[in-house]
């Protein structure tokens, strides 16, 4: 079992893994044109693929390429939660006026599911 050092945080991890289990970063080896990039893929978001499989969305810090990677069993849960909750901590609109803003544009969706009748 060969170990490699994470380019981002310095953790030693097994080289068969797709990304570092602590900081969830990996290295962008080659881009779509087959040229070397060498940038660090930082995790930016989490999404649930069909059948409830969670995947990490990574973005290359150097060239901006995007990729998805399945979340492994041993990945640090604190890091995952911090990535997943980052947008919620920084909303671009006033959250308390969510309903009002949606009604204003005539958009679909309301929050009635939460409030019991």
């Amino acid at each position: 079992m060969a170990m490699i050092e994470c380019e981002n945080c310095g953790t030693m991890y097994d080289e068969s893994l797709d990304h570092c289990p602590e900081c969830l970063s990996s290295v962008h080896e080659t881009n779509d044109d087959g040229e070397e990039c060498g940038g660090i893929f930082e995790p930016v978001s989490v999404w649930i693929k069909d059948k409830g499989r969670p995947e990490l969305i990574c973005r290359c810090q150097f060239c901006g390429a995007l990729k998805t990677e399945p979340i492994e069993e041993d990945d640090n849960p604190v890091t995952i939660m911090s990535i997943a909750s980052r947008p919620l901590a920084n909303p671009p609109f006033p959250v308390e006026r969510l309903q009002e803003l949606t009604d204003l544009m005539g958009g679909q969706g309301d929050m009635s599911g939460y409030y019991r009748k």
């Binding site: 947008p87 919620l88 909303p91 671009p92 609109f93 959250v95 969510l98 309903q99 803003l101 949606t102 544009m105 958009g107 679909q108 969706g109 309301d110 929050m111």
Partner: peptide
């Protein structure tokens, strides 16, 4: 639509 954006997040 802020409702859909929030749901996505």
């Amino acid at each position: 639509n802020p409702m859909k954006l929030m749901a996505l997040a």
